[in-house]
Structures are given as structure tokens and as C-alpha cells.
Design a protein around this nucleic acid. Structure first.
Lengths: 345, 345
DNA sequence: CGCTTTTCTGCATAGCTATGCAAGTTTAAG
DNA sequence: CTTAAACTTGCATAGCTATGCAGAAAAGCG
């Protein structure tokens, strides 16, 4: 690790005292001029603004953090941004946070170790709250999050603990729903294409799907992928070459769904939806692209985001409450060509 | 704008003084125990760590920002994360920044107004440097960035000014190269599918492409989109319905390239590469997906990121230099099915 | 053991703003 | 014009850590 830090104070920075001097007022006046709540005469404010402009003064938020103990920063922990769903979720979250006058301290995390380090860092910067958009999460993680003593919101994941809230879609029900629909469509060889086992949402979708088929006494064949297109393409291609012939395939997410569709078509020479129906999850833009037209569950990221921001707002206005809520947003199944099949004969 | 801020100090937070008291040492000892450079005996450090653990103390970075004038935060300004290229670039940038011991203060910006506000905010938080990944950028913007008096790095865009460096791919040359290749492939009706006019990179690609064809005295037909799939699909579909029959299409980016491919196939009934060759830009994962196989320029995001981080490191270690460099990374043209055509007859 | 050198520790302070308080000033009311 | 009320301003201070300095302790050396 390179160390770019320097201890020496090199550049002299303009302070409110400089502005006060130039404007011929006290430092407090400068502070009040930039405050929305304080009382100050328009004339003084004008003088201050003019001096500030001349000196290119920007109010320094750091000392106020020390005074109030609130940084105005919300930590966001993400695991990766390659899935467009997370990109767009981060986009919306940060927009809402900014709207509310807060900033985003972004941390990217690869594993549990870096997560622990990240938490220390975030605590050091005194973030006012924390939003995690991580698939991974154990009891240890939950405990570490709770220990931060700030509101924590799990976006699209579920952890339990004091001060920890979570917002997610009803993965289990969605899985069961796919099973039911496939049964109506006459599917007899159902397949499940899994994401990484650490992914709790993926596990829940699988569980629902399996239960839905369990009622019919039909067992589901499971394929394993890693949340991305390539692994899905490989896994399905390999299965097809091994003689598998699914007539219904539920994929852990849309990136995998697209990979599966391509494999079914190119490797297996199968046509969709005639030979096989496919359902994904997330309803990313690519699912709607003409070459795929993949049916998918829309997790309604805006609803997820809105719920998260709502919890955030309430948590911040009542810091002693240690809110611990769970919001489950029902996912919308968007039907497209990949399942456009009439009912079973 | 809702105001979640509270002025009252509610939660008592553990300070280094608390730890010092419990450990039976001075506050300075605690500070030194958590510092890597200071000199402290192993015994004392041990005592401090034990006490810190017991009290769940996390060193507070805020006062140190006041003392040193350095926040350890790098501001990153993005315009949107829907294009996977930016998601993955942000991912890599933030990883590198974290690696170097810095944090990421993320700001999302929609227009020039929010940009101005964002700059004030970032200045207030005393970010040590700034990386912008914005397509937009005028002279005013450049001046505002320069006025921050911190190193600024334009990622994938080019602004000029003291203290402003930029890293981008050779958009103009790439455009010219596509023109030359299309000429070898026998293209006679070249089309350009543009991104938003504010996008400087898109304009440069266009300019190169036009110049390349200008030499042949062949004029390029231009279509207008907005950087995303849907607009590309619409624009191309409309053109096809209006009787256009391109035999070579260069698209401002891959999202648009995919939209164009689908329109050519579904709306125009054309086959690619037989009837028309298509080239995109960015080499996002989707360009490699089997249903598209879109030839594209790989901007080599890792090289862009590495160059950015290199400039960042040097800027931070020599804050008085006001570095102002321009790095142009040559994009790799990745040829796929969408241009797999033998030379012109 | 006496000396120098090195290592360790505590004291005191700087860093910059927001705010309670009191004093001063303007406005409103009678 | 007097008095009360509202508003404005400056003073002084708190908030928490890192670090220069000096003194103390330990280590090294002859």
C-alpha cells in the first residue's frame, strides 16, 4: 500500500475568519450568513457573501461535524456494480440521499475481511447511517453492523439485529409463483439455475421454486452459476451437451437468464418459448431487449429505494429508537416472449 | 427538501480520553497506539487496544482532518451508472482508491446546476482530489473545477485548466479507423448513430468517422440517439421505415449498438454482417453476448483507471505542482460477428 | 556504575466553526 | 416620546485528535 498522505500543511486555506476580516464583521456573522436557520440582517449577509466570493471561500463542514457529531454522510457498501440492477439502485439511492441534504461515502467490499475494515473506516468518518447492498451476510456481520450504533439498512438482503432494517423483494413467493405458472404451462422438466450459494436472495428464490414443485412431486434439476452471463451460458451449455432437455428454466437473475437463453438457442438448438420457457429476476434493461425478451420479476427498485429512504429518514430523526424493520416489496412478474405460451393442452 | 439533521448531541460517543482513562495512560498514548508512525512501547499499545476493544472505540478521523487539512477522501462525480462501462469503471476506481488508503465520496450529477452545488459540497468536505466521469463539460465547468485548488482528473473526458488532468481513449482516431475498415469491407452507405450532443467523446468519434469518409468524398448519414438502447432502436427503426438502407453503421456506444442491431434485424429484416456491418464503442459485456456479437472498441477501462490512479498518486504527493496532464489510451478494436466480413470484392 | 543515546510518555495546544449568552440596535406599540 | 419587544451582533467556548516539546525511563557502552 502506497502512502500518499502528507502531514505538512502546505496550502493555506481560506477560513471564515479571513472572510470576516475582509467583510469587517465577526467570524460568527460569517457562520450565520451561510446558515439557513440563524438570524442575520440582509445587509450583513450581503457583505459576507461578497467577501466570500472575492476570497473564493467555501464553508468548511469538518468542524461542524465535530460540534454536532453528525457528518451528513451516509455510508453505502456495495459488493459490485456489474449487475445493472445495482448500478441503477445506487444511482437512485444516492439521488435520494443528496435530495435530503446528505452525502454518500461509497465503499466497495469483496469479502468479509474487507467488510470489517470498511466498517471501522466508516465509523471513523462518523457516517450518520449505513446502507448495505450486499448479498453476503452472516450473524457475525450483523453483530458488527449493530455495534456501529448507527441506523443500518440492508438493501435487497436480510440481516437481523438491533438498529438493522431490511428492504427486499419477496423472493420465496416469486419462486413459488414461477413453479405454479410453469405447471400451468405444462412444464414437466423444471430446472433451476442458481447464483452463488452465498447469495441469500438466490437461495430464497430457489427454496420457493423447489417448494412449488414439491407439491407436484416433481423434482427440480439444479445448475450452478455465479451471477453472471458467462457462467450461465457455460452451465446450461454443458447440461445440454450432457443430454439434459429442460422445458422450464428459472434463473437466479437476468444476466444469467440471458446467458441461458443464448445457450439454449445456440448450443442446444432449442427454441424459446416453444421448447422451453425461461424466467429471470431483476428485470434489468437487457431482459427487455428484442433479442432476449426475457420474462422477469421486476423488483421495483424505485419502491425498494423509496422504502429504504423512508426508513433512513425516520431513523435519522429518532436516533435513539434503534429502528429494526423489515419491508418486503412484492416483485412484479413481467411476462415477455420467453414465456409467451398458452396454457397446457 | 426534508431536513433530517439534528443539532442536539444525543448519543455519547466513546473518545480517546475514555480509552486513556480505562487503560491508565494519557490521551496521546491512545492516539499513538492507533498511529502507524508514532513511537510507542508494545506494552502500552497492548493496554490501549484492550481498553479500546472493551469500550468499542473507533478512532475518529474528523479531528485529524482539521489538523492536517487532508480528509483522505476523493470525490467522484458521475453522471449516471446505467451504462455498464461506468459501473465497472467506478468499481475499479474505488477499489484502487481504497487500496491507497483513501475513501470515495460519491456525487451524482444530472446537470450543470447540480454540478455547481456538488462542487461546493465537495469543497466543504475538503476532499483531497476529484475525479469526474462526466460526459458534459464546458469552459465554465473547467474554471469551477480549477477554482477548487485540488487535483482534478477527468475520466473519459477532456477539460483544460490548471490542476486538471484528463484520461481518455483516442476517440477521434477510432472513428477514423472505423471509416477506413468499412471502406475495405466495401461499405458504400455509411451511417453514424450519435449520442447526446453534449457528449464530447461521442462528438470526437463522429468527427473522426466523418473525416475518414470525407477523404473518399462519401457523406455519412447521421442518426440521433441518447446513449441508450431504446433511443437507438427507435432511431434506426424509423430510418429503416423511411427507406434508409445502411450497409455500415458506427454507433456512439455499445448500448446503442445493441439497439441498432435489433432494429436492423427485427424492423428492417436485414442480416448482419451480410447486409450491414455494425461497430460500437466501450466493449461492454453485452457486446460479447451471443445474440449480438457486436464489434466494439475496448477502451481498456483498467488502463484508464490505472492512468487515473497514477496521476492521482503523483498529484497528491506533490500538491503544489498543479499537475495538468493528458493521457490518451488507445482503444482496442475487438472484431466480432457484426463485422466478420471478408474484404470488399 | 556513570555516561550517552535512544525510546517512551505526558502536557499543552492547534485546527475552524456553530451556538448560548449578553449586550447592543432597531422596530413596534402605546 | 417612552417602553417593550424583536432582532442582530460579537464574545467566548466546545468539540477530539495529532504532534512538538521536554522530561523520564530504558538501553547501550566502556
Amino acid at each position: 500500500m502506497t502512502s500518499w498522505h502528507k502531514r505538512v500543511m502546505t496550502k493555506r486555506v481560506i477560513t471564515s475568519i479571513d472572510v470576516a476580516r475582509l467583510a469587517g464583521v465577526s467570524q460568527s456573522a460569517v457562520s450565520r450568513a451561510f446558515s439557513t436557520t440563524a438570524s442575520i440582517s440582509p445587509a450583513t449577509r450581503e457583505k459576507v457573501f461578497k467577501a466570500a466570493e472575492a476570497l473564493n471561500y467555501k464553508p468548511n463542514r469538518i468542524p461542524s461535524i465535530m460540534l454536532t457529531g453528525r457528518s451528513g454522510m451516509i455510508g453505502i457498501i456495495v459488493g459490485g456494480l456489474r449487475n445493472p440492477l445495482y448500478g441503477s439502485a445506487l444511482e437512485q439511492l444516492s439521488a435520494g440521499i443528496r435530495e435530503a441534504g446528505f452525502q454518500v461515502l461509497l465503499v466497495q467490499v469483496m469479502d468479509t475481511v474487507t467488510l470489517e475494515m470498511a466498517l471501522d473506516t466508516l465509523a471513523g468518518y462518523r457516517v450518520d447511517a449505513l446502507i448495505t447492498a450486499l448479498a453476503i451476510g452472516s450473524e457475525d456481520t450483523a453483530a458488527a453492523l449493530s455495534a456501529l450504533n448507527i441506523p443500518v439498512i440492508c438493501f435487497n438482503s436480510a440481516l437481523i439485529g438491533p438498529g438493522i432494517s431490511s428492504v427486499r423483494s419477496n423472493n420465496f413467493d416469486s419462486g413459488r409463483r414461477v413453479a405454479a405458472l410453469m405447471q400451468e404451462w405444462g412444464v414437466e422438466r423444471p430446472y433451476w439455475l442458481a447464483g452463488p450459494v452465498v447469495n441469500a436472495a438466490s437461495r430464497a428464490r430457489r427454496a420457493g421454486f423447489l417448494e412449488g414443485w414439491g407439491a407436484k412431486k416433481l423434482s427440480v434439476t439444479e445448475l450452478q452459476g455465479d451471477d453472471h452471463y458467462d457462467s450461465a451460458f457455460s452451465a446450461v451449455s454443458e447440461a445440454l451437451r450432457a443430454g439434459h432437455r429442460p422445458d422450464g428454466l428459472f434463473c437466479s437473475n437476468d444476466l444469467m437468464g440471458c446467458g441461458a437463453l443464448d445457450a439454449l438457442k445456440d448450443t442446444g438448438g432449442m427454441s424459446c418459448p416453444e421448447d422451453v420457457v425461461v424466467v429471470g429476476y431483476d428485470n434489468i434493461p437487457q431482459a427487455a431487449w428484442h433479442s432476449y425478451q426475457l420474462s422477469s420479476f421486476d423488483q421495483r427498485p424505485d419502491a425498494l429505494v423509496a422504502a429504504s429512504l423512508d426508513i433512513l429518514a425516520r431513523s435519522l430523526s429518532a436516533p435513539d429508537e434503534r429502528l429494526s424493520e423489515t419491508h418486503v416489496i412484492e416483485a412484479d412478474l413481467v411476462l415477455r416472449r420467453s414465456t409467451s405460451r398458452t396454457l397446457a393442452p
